[in-house]
Amino acid sequence: MAQALEQDPDFDVILGMGTKEPRVALERAEFVRSDQAYSILSRIVRATHVDTIIHTFVITNTSEASYRTLHETNVIGTMNLLAAAGQRGSMVRQVVVKSSSTVYGATENDPVWFREETPRSKSVRSRLERSLIDVEQLVKDFAEDNPATVVSMVRCANVLGSEIVTPLSSNLARKFAPVIDGFDPLVQFVHESDVVECLLHLTRKRIPGLYNLAGDGKIPWSEVLGICGTKAMHLPAYGTMNIASLLVHLGLIHFTPEMEPLLRYGRGIDTTRIKRTGFEPRYTTAGTVRNFIKAMRLARNMGKEPPSYTFEQDIEQFFRHSPAVVRS
């Protein structure tokens, strides 16, 4: 994301924040390491007079985060971020938030396509969904309280790409992926580069509103496995979670509570609204899957070689701040 922002000369100063050091080289963006709940944000907003915040730290991968971390980061983190953006004397004029289509849930009562205003079909069960709904509510409240600030939120379909690790992507990159016997739901994917492009599009053009984002089309889960050349790990239709958690313990598959309804009923989100703003995703759903698996094969065939440049903070600091470096 930061690399993409650096390409655009319209952004003068770019500040990155996260709980981990960035894994890629950043040329002119500065990075601040923060705690889980991003409590330092209000000081940064005050100190730097930042005018745009792109909020992408919402966790959707529950296999890697405990529920406490999930709540701290998603809900409390967003609360701190919005409190910082809305504080007295804040220069923030735009907030862009990345959310997930998981907020719609996945049930047998669902329409084939969710529009932004379609309500959920059933009440919330999973903790991730509840946490995302809380985040969205905070953002909506913020938008109402700060009418002068442009607030936009993107609900992304399941993201695939070479950089991002999700429970689905780690399954597809392996030999076996879970399949619930007797179900072959239609699923939707969006490529990580399209997510970045979409957030940039909304940021550059200062477009407010709530948008769905997904690659065109919906394809059966079996076809996803077919494109990836991944074999099916059959899970029974009844007692699915029990068998799945057993297989997770054996290290054979990745499985999260949110995957169960998704692999049963699938989900589709309608992207008409984001397309009307002039944004067109580059990859279709099938194209996203194919692109993802090609990138995975490349990585597998070349071995896990380190990237050409590893980011090292000290060296970066030297180039940035040392008087010995000649700056043109």
């Binding site: 004029r93 735009q94 932004e116 205003e117 953002v139 909506k140 938008a143 109402e144 009418p147 002068a148 600030t149 442009v150 607030v151 936009s152 939120m153 200062r206 477009i207 407010p208 509103g209 709530l210």
Partner: peptide
């Protein structure tokens, strides 16, 4: 040109 439409109105 920032718009003044809050999110839930747009929704």
């Amino acid at each position: 040109k920032p718009s003044k439409t809050p999110l839930n109105k747009l929704e």
